[in-house]
Nucleic acid binder design. Structure first.
Length: 417
RNA sequence: CGGGGCGUAGUAUACCGGUAGUACGCACGCUUCGGGUGCGUGUAGACCGGGUUCGAUUCCCGGCGCCCCGACCA
């Protein structure tokens, strides 16, 4: 799209009420707008990034057999009473409201209960299993203290998947597959080398759950890490027994801060029993379905990428999540030939299905470059009198700063999907 | 929920118990044109309520909002 038509604008200074790097940069570059503490709107650039992240997650969820749905944000009180999680004493992040017709509803902070209840309509036999469903949902959580920009809000987008399996053994197998697919997601998001499967508290259901922790000082969690063995343990479960089980010694572990970007959890049969989700096995015997849940914080990931990969000039998006493939920048100084050439390049890129943000604005070069660095699209193509006289384009990689001269056909070839 | 801090143009900030200043932005003109060009003109502001005072944006109280530390985060 033409940048002159993009309604958002960049800013030189960050708002004074944002301290977190992710929020400062995302607001300055025009990706998000703060609505209130812990609540952000996503603007055209931000929405593009969110959709890119969702696309990656969707592809990987589909690859392990997930089927996409969207549950409702409004939830029935009764379901949560059945699992004893309606009480504010038990779950302190509830937003609740009243129906005009009488009665209370909850605004979904999680969806295990409604999804599992819904599945009673569709799962009755071992032939109906396994079933894996997932969704991208806006979760509403009445956090007492929102913080860290888009990393911990009252309203955020999450991908959650639920697995329904016939036995613990079948569940374990899928759990492993889901783990692998999650690691692939983080790999594709450019966070692979700093994201670790981490052993964490299993709560009331199992001994452990697993988290995916991305190393960053901006994180809220402390984990103990053995880089060589790729073993990570959340501080909250670091005991001699746990270290023994994972065959690591305390003095081999490094204490680091990390952002929890995902988690996976086994519920066993407890929730199915509470909500009444049973199936008949091949002998006609009734058994509870084994449930697992898997979550990835989509908006939190966007913040994490900014925290981890940005530099002093601005954001540096990994290729797969960048809002555009290329940032075409025309440095015309009023020269009509340059504008014409840049326009031609814009059309050429679009014809070849390349997502391009075209800075056609009538502003000076310095401002364009500064904005381009801030916005952080992986490749910048510059058209100017200088490049025209040399018969090509200047290509700059945002991450490395590597500059080269290329022809239009080389550009198209390299970027074509 | 405990503790601390802060609310001044669209943004970032300054000063002040006596008619609120600067920069950026925005509008117009000139200038300039590969790293936020220079100049001029203009535009626009004290969170809300109460109190003290001759007079409150400034001091006090309350509310609301925002930020930070901690707690919490199946």
């Amino acid at each position: 799209m033409r940048q002159s038509e993009l309604f958002t604008k960049t800013r030189k200074s960050a708002p004074k009420d944002e301290v977190a790097k992710n929020a400062q940069l995302l607001i300055r570059a025009g990706y998000i707008h703060k609505e209130m503490a812990g609540v952000y709107s996503f603007l055209p650039l931000g929405l593009r990034v969110l959709e890119k992240i969702k696309r990656i997650v969707r592809e990987e969820m589909n690859a392990v057999g997930g089927q996409e749905i969207i549950m409702t944000a409004l939830q029935r009180k009764e379901l949560w009473e059945m699992t004893d999680r309606w009480d504010d004493e038990k779950v302190d992040v509830w937003f609740k409201s009243e129906l005009k017709s009488g009665g209370e509803v909850g605004l979904g902070w999680s969806h295990e209960e409604p999804v599992t209840d819904m599945m009673k309509q569709f799962i009755a036999s071992y032939r109906d299993l396994p079933t894996y469903v997932y969704q991208f949902q806006t979760k509403l959580r009445n956090e007492l203290r929102a913080k860290s920009g888009i990393m911990r809000g009252k309203e955020f987008v999450m991908n959650d998947m639920y697995s329904y399996s016939v036995s613990e053994k079948a569940h374990k197998e899928f759990y492993e597959k889901a783990t692998a697919s999650y690691l692939k997601v983080f790999e594709r998001l450019g966070l692979g080398d700093r994201t670790f499967l981490t052993v964490a508290s299993g709560g009331a259901f199992t001994q452990f759950s697993h988290e995916f922790q991305t190393l960053s000082d901006a994180g809220e969690d402390t984990i103990h890490l053995h880089r060589g063995k790729k073993v990570a343990i959340n501080k909250e479960v670091l005991t001699d027994d746990v270290m023994k089980q994972l065959s690591v010694a305390r003095d081999e572990l490094e204490e680091v801060r990390a952002i929890e970007v995902g988690n996976i959890f086994s519920f066993g049969d407890s929730k199915s029993k509470q909500l009444g989700l049973f199936f008949k096995d091949e002998h006609g015997k009734e058994k509870p379905v084994i449930l697992g849940s898997y979550g990835i914080g989509i908006t939190r990931l966007m913040g994490t990428i900014v925290e981890v990969l940005s530099d002093e000039k601005g954001i540096v998006w990994p290729t797969e999540v960048a809002p555009f493939d290329v940032h075409l920048v025309a440095i015309s100084g009023g020269n009509g030939d340059v504008v014409k050439e840049a326009d031609r390049m814009y059309e050429l890129l679009r014809e070849n299905n390349i997502d391009v943000l075209y800075d056609d604005r009538d502003v000076r070069a310095g401002e364009k470059f500064a904005d381009s660095d801030l916005i952080g699209i992986p490749i910048r193509l510059v058209v100017s009198e200088k490049t025209m006289s040399e018969g090509g384009l200047e290509r700059v990689e945002r991450g490395s700063g590597t500059t080269s001269f290329v022809s239009d056909s080389e550009v198209v070839q390299a970027l074509q999907k």
